[in-house]
C-alpha cells in the first residue's frame, strides 16, 4: 500500500459551502481532506483510515451531534489523535464541554488560510512527535505517583455557594480542589483552605481564558456562615443609587 506523505484530515460539517471552502484551504496547506457527510457510516469510515486530525463542527443540524462524534472518535481512535471542534457561534459552555469530552482545541468557523495553517499545523506535527516523546518516558512505579499540584487563578465573584474564577487552565467538571489565598483568609479569619468542587466551566470569549464555578463543600456550615457574613458586610458598603 502506498504510504501517504501528506497528513489526512477528516472534516465533518453539514454546510456544503463551508465543506468546499475547507477542502480548498486544506489542500492548499498540504493536507488531504476527507469530508464525511454520512454520519451513520462515520464509525465504519474512520475505522478503515488513519487520519492525523479530526475537524468537527459542533452544530451539525440534522446530521447529529458533534459532541457524540468526539466521544466516538476517542473510543475508536484512542486519546492521541487531535480533535479540533469548529463552531460559527461558540457558546462558552459548549466549547468547554467539547474540551472535556476529549477535543483538543476549538476554532471559530473561518476560511482564513493563514489562521488554519497556523492552528492545524500545531496539531498535525504533534501526534508523531508526541509518540516519539512517549518512547523517552517510562512508567513510574505502580503506574502512578500521587501529588498535589498548585497553580494560580483569579477570583471574579464570590457568592454564598462558591466562587467564580478565571484561569489559563480548563478545570474539568466534578474535580475536587482546595482554594487558598489572602481573600480566603480575610473571609474565614484563618489559614484554612476552602474545599470545593467544580460544577461549571466555560471559555471566556474576550481573552480566551477558562472560567469555572467552584462550589464550596456543603457540609462545612461554618465556612458558609463566614462567607455570608462577609458578603452581607461587603454588599452593605456598596452605595445604593437613588433615582
Amino acid at each position: 500500500m502506498a504510504r501517504l506523505t501528506k497528513p489526512l484530515a477528516v472534516l465533518v460539517d453539514d454546510d456544503p459551502l463551508f465543506q468546499k471552502g475547507m477542502e480548498t484551504v486544506l489542500i492548499s496547506i498540504g493536507v488531504i481532506p476527507l469530508i464525511v457527510t454520512d454520519i451513520d457510516k462515520f464509525v465504519h469510515t474512520i475505522r478503515s483510515i488513519k487520519p492525523e486530525i479530526f475537524l468537527i463542527d459542533l452544530n451539525l443540524g440534522k446530521f447529529g451531534s458533534g459532541f457524540d462524534l468526539i466521544s466516538t472518535i476517542r473510543i475508536e481512535k484512542g486519546p492521541y489523535v487531535p480533535i479540533v471542534v469548529i463552531s460559527a457561534n461558540p457558546e462558552q459552555t459548549s466549547v468547554a464541554h467539547a474540551l472535556e469530552l476529549g477535543a483538543n482545541d476549538y476554532i471559530i468557523k473561518t476560511l482564513d488560510r493563514e489562521f488554519l495553517a497556523s492552528k492545524l499545523g500545531r496539531y498535525l506535527k504533534s501526534p508523531a512527535l508526541a509518540n516519539r516523546r512517549q518512547a523517552l518516558f517510562s512508567e513510574v512505579a505502580g503506574g502512578r505517583f500521587q501529588v498535589t499540584t498548585k497553580f494560580n487563578v483569579e477570583i471574579t465573584e464570590i457568592d454564598e455557594m462558591g466562587v467564580k474564577l478565571l484561569s489559563q487552565e480548563l478545570l474539568a467538571k466534578g474535580s475536587s480542589l482546595a482554594i487558598s489565598g489572602s481573600i480566603m483568609q480575610v473571609i474565614s479569619g484563618t489559614d484554612d483552605n476552602f474545599l470545593a468542587t467544580i460544577t461549571q466551566n466555560w471559555t471566556e470569549a474576550d481573552d480566551g481564558r477558562f472560567g469555572a464555578y467552584a462550589e464550596f463543600e456543603p457540609e462545612n456550615k461554618s465556612i458558609r456562615h463566614r462567607i455570608r457574613k462577609w458578603l452581607l458586610g461587603m454588599n452593605s458598603k456598596v452605595p445604593k443609587i437613588s433615582l
Binding site: Q134, R144, V147, E157, I158, S167, S176, S180
Partner: peptide, 26 residues
C-alpha cells in the same frame, strides 16, 4: 442570594490545589 463581583482591577488571586498523578517520567 448574596453575590459580590470584584471590580476587574481589584480581582484577588488565589491558589488552587488539586490532586494529580505522575504517570511517566524521565
Amino acid at each position: 442570594f448574596q453575590i459580590y463581583v470584584f471590580p476587574k482591577e481589584t480581582r484577588p488571586k488565589a491558589t488552587l490545589s488539586i490532586n494529580a498523578d505522575i504517570v511517566m517520567c524521565n
